[in-house]
Each structure stands twice: as structure tokens, then as C-alpha cells.
Simulated assay, not measured.
Amino acid sequence: MFDGRGFDAAEHLVDDWQEGFERRAAQARELATRMAGLSAVGRSPDGLIEVTVGRSGELTGIRLDEETRRQPTATTEREILAAVTAARATLAEKAREAVDGTLGADSETGRAILAGYEAGHDGGR
């Protein structure tokens, strides 16, 4: 029934599959570690406002220069939103770098992760 070659080929195929699985699992662990530590900072065009966003794009910090008291609140509001948008764009770029450094941004899995990630971090656009 088995002539030896078929069994050896099947065994080699299973070994290759296992190696590939273990490699992808290691890449996934590395990516998870990199993504867990992501954050980004954005600044308003005038530099009076600085915000920090966490790995999910959530606002985790905000710094307002005292000079913001001298400007209309509508200006401060616009500049906060601009700083958040800038921070989220930086975060998306860091995510791209993390994916590219592990799975590869051009891999099928990398593209799928980035598509979902960037869709949730586009500043509401």
C-alpha cells in the first residue's frame, strides 16, 4: 500500500506545515507585544496643545499650554481635534511598522489586520 516515498513525502509535508505554523505563531506573539505598547502623540499646528492616544486610539493624555486661555474656545476645540487626528495618524503608521516588521504589511494577514486597524483609527473620516 505504501511504497515509502508517499509516506516520507506526507511526513515532510506535515513537518513543513508545523514549521510554518510555529513561525506564524511566533510572528503573532511578536506582533501582539508590539501592538500592546503602542501610543502616539499629536500636536496642534500652533504647538499649544499636545495629546496622547493609546493603542486603541483612545485619548490617554492632553496638555494645554496656558496660552490657550487667550484664544477663543472654538479655536481650542478645533486644535484639540486636529491634534487627536494627527496622533491617530501617527498611531496607524506605528501599527503599519509593527505589522511590516513581523507579518509583513503586504502579506494577506498583514493587509487584513491593517485594514481593520486603520478603519478604526481614521479620526472618524
Rank of each mutant, 00 (worst) to 15 (best):
M1G: 15
D3E: 07
G4L: 02
R5E: 11
G6T: 08
D8P: 10
D8V: 05
D8G: 08
D8H: 09
A10T: 14
E11L: 06
H12V: 14
L13F: 12
V14C: 15
D15M: 13
D16A: 03
Q18T: 13
Q18S: 14
Q18V: 03
E19G: 06
E19A: 13
G20Q: 10
F21I: 08
F21H: 03
R23D: 05
R24D: 03
R24K: 12
A25V: 02
A25F: 06
A28E: 11
R29N: 11
L31P: 00
T33R: 06
M35A: 15
A36T: 00
S39D: 06
S39G: 12
S39I: 01
A40Q: 10
A40L: 00
V41N: 09
G42P: 06
R43M: 12
R43C: 06
D46Y: 06
D46V: 05
G47F: 03
I49Y: 04
T52K: 09
T52G: 05
G54M: 00
R55Q: 02
R55V: 00
S56L: 06
T60F: 00
G61M: 04
I62F: 01
I62C: 07
L64N: 11
D65L: 01
E66Q: 09
E67K: 14
T68E: 09
R69Q: 11
Q71K: 14
Q71F: 15
P72C: 03
T73N: 15
T73F: 13
A74T: 12
T76V: 15
R78S: 09
E79L: 11
I80Y: 08
I80N: 10
I80L: 08
A83L: 13
V84L: 11
V84K: 07
T85I: 02
T85S: 05
A86P: 10
A86N: 07
A87H: 03
A87I: 13
R88E: 01
T90I: 02
T90P: 11
E93N: 01
E93W: 02
A95N: 07
E97Q: 06
D100Q: 01
G101H: 09
T102Y: 01
T102L: 13
L103W: 07
G104S: 15
S107A: 10
E108G: 15
T109S: 13
T109A: 10
G110V: 03
R111G: 08
I113P: 01
L114E: 03
A115K: 12
G116P: 02
Y117H: 04
E118R: 15
E118V: 03
A119F: 04
G120T: 04
G123K: 01
G124V: 03
G124H: 12
G124P: 01
R125C: 09
